[in-house]
Structure formats: structure tokens, C-alpha cells
């Protein structure tokens, strides 16, 4: 069952990658503000042009 270990390895690397992304997000202050982003997305500037 080599493939089991391969899959676990691959899945672990993906998971560790996401862990790194998570740590980056927390450290770089992405989540310092956990309210206003949800409100800001509601404001779009008016549509300028359809091309």
C-alpha cells in the first residue's frame, strides 16, 4: 500500500502549505480587523464601462 503513504505525504504537504499561509495571514495582520471587510465588500463604485 505504497500509495497510502504517498497520499498522506502529499496531503500533509498541502496541509503544511496551508498552515504556512495561515501563519502568514495572521502575522501580516490580515485578520486584525475581523468585521469591516465584510461591510466594505458591499460598497462598489458605480459601473463605468461595459466592454
Amino acid at each position: 500500500m505504497t500509495v497510502v503513504f504517498l497520499l498522506i505525504l502529499v496531503s500533509l504537504v498541502v496541509a503544511l502549505g496551508f498552515l504556512a499561509a495561515f501563519l502568514w495571514a495572521v502575522r501580516s495582520g490580515q485578520y486584525d480587523d475581523d468585521y469591516t471587510p465584510s461591510v466594505r465588500i458591499l460598497f462598489d463604485e458605480k459601473q463605468t464601462e461595459n466592454d
Binding site: D34, P37, S38, L42
Partner: peptide, 11 residues
């Protein structure tokens, strides 16, 4: 949220 025009319940 856009369709409801209100922010998500808990971000």
C-alpha cells in the same frame, strides 16, 4: 451578502 445587501452574519 451582496444580494441581501448586508454583511455576512459573522466574518
Amino acid at each position: 451578502p451582496k444580494a441581501a445587501n448586508r454583511p455576512v452574519y459573522s466574518y
